[in-house]
Design a binder for these strands. Structure first.
Lengths: 331, 331
DNA sequence: AAAACCACAGAGAACGTTTTCCCTGCTAGG
DNA sequence: CCTAGCAGGGAAAACGTTCTCTGTGGTTTT
């Protein structure tokens, strides 16, 4: 039998209500407070969070639903969200959908049942569409993937502008055959693709967009098809994220292409190892901590201002030039 | 006001108890079952998990506490644990301690308050020591880091043997000055260090153990000190994990060392990018899915057999030879 | 000095379930 | 035909808190 608030109350010779007040930090006679605290330590009392949440009707819990935890971008954001949330006394329920809309729906349902305070969500494409129609009991902040007309608050980076930056970089280096590899399933992919297309147009060179599926085997097949014919091979690539980049590297390795001589690579996301392949890759670094922090802040803010208009925070990425393009950082 | 089980009961014209029974899948007249299900859909009822947990006294929740989610090894294990747990109808509370024993203690306390069913834990060194003395209300399964005499169930890999494998590999390639870089704060680091030491002895060459702190800046300073003096520089390294390896690469890059010509690298963990640096790195791949799966299984098993003796599962790693050492896999 | 107020403690309801207990009606066995 | 047994449904307690309401003692205000 576990020790409850009533046991503490008996030991401290006060009422359960008083124990509750002490624990909640409400004003209580110092004498009693000491007695209660002593009793808490003596009994080894630990509050039962289920009971607390049931009665108080707030769970102090946020859900964090990401599409792919193996993607270091999401790992990094998750870490930040977790750290900040716990700082603010919020618990985090962590969910990984693996880009599966059904799993995502299941998790959103679970969030309802948990009666979470709010949710931070990187939706699948279908999920993003559905969110617009469904109304949930809790506020949602979308991260990374959010259509400009989304019906929720969102925090994203300026994907189009950043993709353009990569194109311009490659163009300056003299590349004229620049292919763009983008995910088929996400808003983010489409935005980056748009930015790529427009930049290619402005540079006056024809774009070649390659839609890449999320699943690795399939992705590698698509990429192989793009690269294996030397005569039609692009000289440079804009790649949509670090996971896709790994598929590119594997295929390039199999085809014995040397980076960047046979193929110049640029990508979104900045992982430490990118410094060390192909003489250093030029990339767009996303402000992962700031994304996480902003998301939590927006969520908290939304709780206080339930019917404030929908807000969209667009953060800038950071272009990092490496390798043949010269070292350095450029905002 | 949210819809509760009573509302459903009223709509279906049955008692709340019956609704509860239907939802729990207990035997109920088919007619009533249909009425209840209809009412559930009509009202949009979602069970309140807090209430359910409070009353039923089981939370169907496991805690997963890892030391560093940025370490891809833990990311991979977490993903597996999450997937398997949800398959079995268990919720996962995910916690990241950042190698901070205080945070770890705080989280373990939280697990108590959540009344979790069990915990899977990759402890800090201090945590591992403390676990031995503390008695908790729930079973704990240690992963990755567990002293052989641990008082909990544990699932680990054969660190010493795997470290030895790396040493032997390098020795066969002709290396005689092989330094070993190991974490200072974990059982795992010490085990790998022991294996390294013994293997070096057996090869008849003097070992050079370099204790590397977890924090990146400090780690890089230590590594720089090891590598900067060309005359005393080892020709090969055994590195304890992929995070540490990144520090090594950064330092090597700054010192303009070419891998593997100036410095051969081998490491624990197998990340996709390791194929592409220094012509491919030879590594020990850990069976991450199996670790996760085994941990969950052991935890569940322990619930049924509370006073079964402590079990320790030791899994084999997989040696993957790449680069100058030749391609291929060897058990 | 009386009235009004304030601060704080205790009693008991309430949160939304599951579970226990009892009651009913049906079936089977003598 | 009567009774024992059984299956399933309803009433109400229980889970461990917080919250509301009331009461009391002391302080301020008029």
């Amino acid at each position: 039998m576990n020790v409850g608030i009533k046991d503490v109350a008996r030991v401290a010779a006060v009422s359960p209500a008083t124990v509750s007040r002490v624990l909640a930090g409400r004003p209580v006679d110092p004498d009693m407070r000491d007695r209660v605290m002593a009793a808490v330590h003596e009994t080894g009392y630990r509050p039962n969070l289920a009971a607390r949440r049931l009665r108080s009707r707030h769970t102090n819990t946020i859900g964090l639903i990401v599409a792919d935890i193996r993607n270091p971008f999401f790992t990094a954001v998750s870490r930040t969200v977790e750290a900040i949330a716990y700082d603010r006394g919020l618990r985090v329920i962590f969910c990984n959908t693996d880009e599966d809309a059904a799993k995502e729906a299941m998790y959103l349902q679970l969030m309802q049942e948990e009666r979470v305070t709010g949710v931070i969500l990187a939706p699948t494409r279908e999920g993003a569409d559905r969110i617009a129609h469904v109304e949930s009991d809790f506020p949602i902040v979308l991260i990374d993937r959010a259509a400009p007309n989304a019906s929720c608050d969102s925090v994203v980076i300026d994907n189009a502008a950043m993709a353009a930056k990569l194109v311009v970089h490659l163009h300056r280096l003299g590349h004229r055959r620049i292919a763009g590899l983008f995910g088929t399933d996400t808003v983010t992919g489409r935005e980056r693709c748009d930015g790529y297309r427009r930049a290619m147009e402005e540079c006056g060179i024809p774009g070649q967009v390659v839609p890449v599926p999320h699943e690795r085997e399939q992705a590698q097949r698509v990429i192989a098809a793009l690269l294996e014919d030397a005569s039609r091979r692009p000289s440079a690539l804009v790649v949509s994220n670090s996971v896709m980049l790994q598929s590119v590297l594997r295929v390039a390795d199999a085809l014995e292409l040397e980076i960047p001589r046979d193929l110049a690579l640029t990508s979104f996301d900045n992982e430490p190892w990118m410094e060390f392949v192909g003489g250093g890759l030029s990339v767009i670094e996303q402000p992962v901590e700031e994304i996480g922090r902003t998301a939590v802040t927006m969520l908290m803010d939304r709780l206080d201002h339930a019917d404030c208009v929908t807000r969209r925070v667009v953060l800038a990425g950071r272009f990092i030039a490496r390798g043949s393009g010269g070292r350095g950082v450029e905002a």
